[in-house]
Simulated scan of single mutants.
Amino acid sequence: MKKLYFFLTVVASLIVWRNAIAQNIIKPGETWPDDKGNHIQAHGGGIIQLGKYYYWYGEQRRQGLDTNYRYVSCYRSKDLVNWKFMGDALQLSDPEQLGRRWVLERPKVYYNRNTKTYVMYFHLDDAKYKLARVGVATSKKPQGPFTYVKSFRPLERESRDIGQFIDDDGTAYLVFESRPTKGFFIAKLSDDYLSVEKEVCLVNAPLEGGAIIHYNGLYYAIGSELTGWRPNPNRYATATSLAGPWSEFKDIAPPATNTYSSQSTMMLKVTGSKTTTVIFMADQWRPKTQWDSRYLWMPLEIGDGKLVLPQPQPWQLNIKTGEAGVVNSPAE
């Protein structure tokens, strides 16, 4: 009996040890469990950092949701690997009498330090994608609940896929795709973040899924072709100013991979004591089983005007030093 007890204890210890190791590794394209063991549901999302915590917001697509509502989830982490589910930050019924199958996509949250308010933007639309507006909701807590405020067309333009960008000086921008203009806009938010103050640039390329980062004196912009749920070769351009001019767009990965079956949603910069890592955040959509859609996060090879998305592999991140490295790389 003692031998059996000892054996079971050893097995249990090994399982705990294995799980602890796994929690330090990001595995692109695999299920990503939260603190409760459930696959993270934060699709088309965005991340903000507040003190020692990162907050990840996204489309809540778990099974069994009330179809009369749309949901935005909130997760919290200290290391970008282990995430605690903070609940549904937004639970919204049809806000503009849009009818069945109305759309809430790509939620992004900003924190306004002057008003001490969390401001959420999202793509709001009807089933035929004719409304083409942004919706705005606010909260006094990062995990919500958020309250719907209004919807509008930024710069009086059609707006579908949206992205967010917060520059190194703290200035907040909305990035949105506008189909009639065959490009995507970069627009500065107003002081209270509740509206758009001015146009900064129209990036003249028919792309969606816009993501921007400022790295070593250059701005990098990534976009996805207009193919809906179907993945395609994402491309990037650079500029010394957000206002442009922007360089010619180039592929971030071998075109045949269709960005490794993913679509860009954000680039996240992690600055540590030793180096800075820029993480490519993308969704691997599964339209027929959206709750099982996956995430492709990988550290980018970036600098001197070049940007490359390496082949996805398990990798580790040291949040304190900013160092990232592939686990069990074939080159090792």
Rank of each mutant, 00 (worst) to 15 (best):
105 E>M: 11
330 P>A: 06
155 L>Y: 06
123 H>L: 03
288 K>P: 00
167 D>V: 00
176 F>M: 12
11 V>T: 07
37 G>I: 02
290 Q>G: 11
79 D>A: 09
216 N>V: 03
67 T>E: 14
169 D>R: 01
64 G>E: 09
100 R>G: 15
83 W>R: 02
247 S>K: 03
229 W>Y: 14
132 A>H: 00
316 Q>A: 15
65 L>T: 13
110 Y>A: 06
220 Y>D: 00
117 T>A: 05
167 D>G: 06
24 N>W: 13
76 R>S: 14
282 A>C: 11
163 G>K: 05
276 T>G: 09
168 D>T: 14
79 D>W: 04
144 G>P: 00
271 T>A: 15
117 T>Q: 14
113 R>M: 11
42 A>Y: 02
269 K>W: 11
166 I>V: 14
180 P>T: 07
327 V>R: 08
53 Y>C: 08
219 Y>M: 06
118 Y>C: 01
140 K>D: 13
9 T>D: 09
155 L>F: 06
26 I>L: 13
263 Q>R: 10
114 N>Q: 14
75 Y>E: 10
23 Q>M: 14
167 D>C: 02
288 K>R: 15
148 Y>D: 10
146 F>L: 10
197 E>L: 11
199 E>W: 08
121 Y>V: 02
150 K>V: 05
325 G>N: 14
181 T>P: 00
130 K>W: 10
182 K>Y: 13
59 E>M: 07
156 E>C: 09
113 R>Q: 15
147 T>P: 02
313 Q>W: 05
243 A>P: 00
282 A>M: 10
164 Q>T: 08
36 K>D: 13
168 D>V: 07
112 N>T: 10
58 G>R: 04
119 V>G: 00
173 Y>N: 03
19 N>S: 13
60 Q>Y: 14
327 V>T: 07
160 R>S: 05
249 F>L: 10
317 L>V: 01
149 V>M: 12
4 L>V: 12
185 F>W: 13
65 L>W: 01
167 D>N: 10
278 V>L: 04
324 A>G: 12
